[in-house]
């Protein structure tokens, strides 16, 4: 059985988990290609014009998968607890895809911890729809979680080494599906490297600590993904030279949270970069270059 996984949104958070899980229960995985211009255009054509950039990209990925696999994996995430809520977009994603592409065969799960649909219950349901036994699914889930944890820790170790390096360090605080998407955040990290600075990613920090520390900046924050990116700022603001807040237009939660971060974090230089589908690289390059120039100058003066 071929399972298609769109390479967008939470793929960048659960890559190892999903890949190992489907392999363990004996499914073949088809991942869509890296985001490209044609995919974005196709996704934009199929989506409501006001939906956010990553949602449009997601639809482009789903569309590219329709012919190449038996089922497309579109899960629904609601929350991981009372104060760890996902953005509303993830709650509606399954229904959006179902209504836009009625011909596609979708599989997925519904993860809502406050309604007794925790991770293992969700995956158990998913295994049932694929005709797998409970024990097989739970064992696969256990291995998948270990694989994900190992991969996360490896990324954290690599990043911790970068913190010890000399040079201008810039923390990219954003949702993982923006930073790691080669079409959206890819050019930005390339530019930062080109300028001789070191990009650090907010999602390569310890997530559990980040979620706790986020409340130092935003007291009542309840979006889990934003907690993780803001928590990285709270944890590492004194170890880096500058912070780039990356947001997609028009992201619902980032609009509020980034505003609050810009108003509250005053001791480190912060800029907010907003990305949309009409992005021109030269405009982005000018902003990044001038920001890094300022950081270098600041560092030279203070030294």
């Amino acid at each position: 059985m071929k399972i298609g996984i769109p390479k967008a949104f939470l793929y960048y958070r659960y890559r190892e988990l999903w890949q190992t899980f489907f392999q363990e229960i004996g499914c073949e995985i088809v991942t869509s290609q890296d985001t490209n211009r044609a995919m974005l255009l196709a996704g934009t054509k199929d989506s409501i014009d006001e939906s956010c950039l990553p949602a449009k990209i997601y639809l482009g990925h789903v569309r590219s998968l329709i012919d190449g696999c038996d089922h497309i994996f579109v899960p629904r995430f609601e929350n991981f607890g009372k104060n760890d809520v996902m953005c509303d977009r993830f709650m509606g994603l399954h229904d959006i895809v179902r209504n836009v592409y009625p011909e596609a065969s979708l599989i997925g799960f519904d993860l809502a911890s406050t309604e007794h649909k925790s991770q293992w219950q969700a995956y158990l349901g998913l295994g049932k729809t694929l005709g797998k036994g409970a024990i097989e699914v739970l064992l696969a889930l256990r291995r998948a979680r270990l694989a994900q944890e190992a991969a996360d820790q490896k990324r954290q170790r690599q990043q911790n080494e970068l913190f010890r390096q000399q040079g201008v360090k810039i923390l990219l605080a954003a949702q993982p599906y923006l930073i790691h998407d080669p079409y959206v955040g890819g050019p930005l990290t390339a530019m930062i490297r080109e300028q001789g600075a070191i990009p650090l990613y907010s999602d390569h920090c310890c997530r559990r600590q980040c979620r706790k520390r986020a409340l130092e900046i935003c007291g009542n924050l309840y979006w889990i993904m934003n907690k993780e990116s803001v928590g990285a700022i709270a944890m590492h603001r004194h170890q880096v030279d500058g912070i780039i807040l990356l947001a997609a237009y028009p992201c619902g939660s980032d609009a509020l949270v980034n505003e609050l971060v810009l108003r509250k974090v005053k001791d480190v230089p912060v800029i907010q970069i907003i990305l949309d589908e009409q992005q021109s690289e030269s405009g982005l390059a000018t902003r990044v270059e001038s920001f890094i120039d300022i950081l270098k100058e600041r560092k030279r003066v203070s030294a």
Binding site: D88, M91, P250
Partner: peptide, 16 residues
């Protein structure tokens, strides 16, 4: 209102 996430989630269903 512009950019209302839940309503945009519902709009593909409304089309149908």
């Amino acid at each position: 209102s512009y950019g209302c996430t839940p309503e945009i989630n519902a709009m593909p269903a409304l089309h149908n």
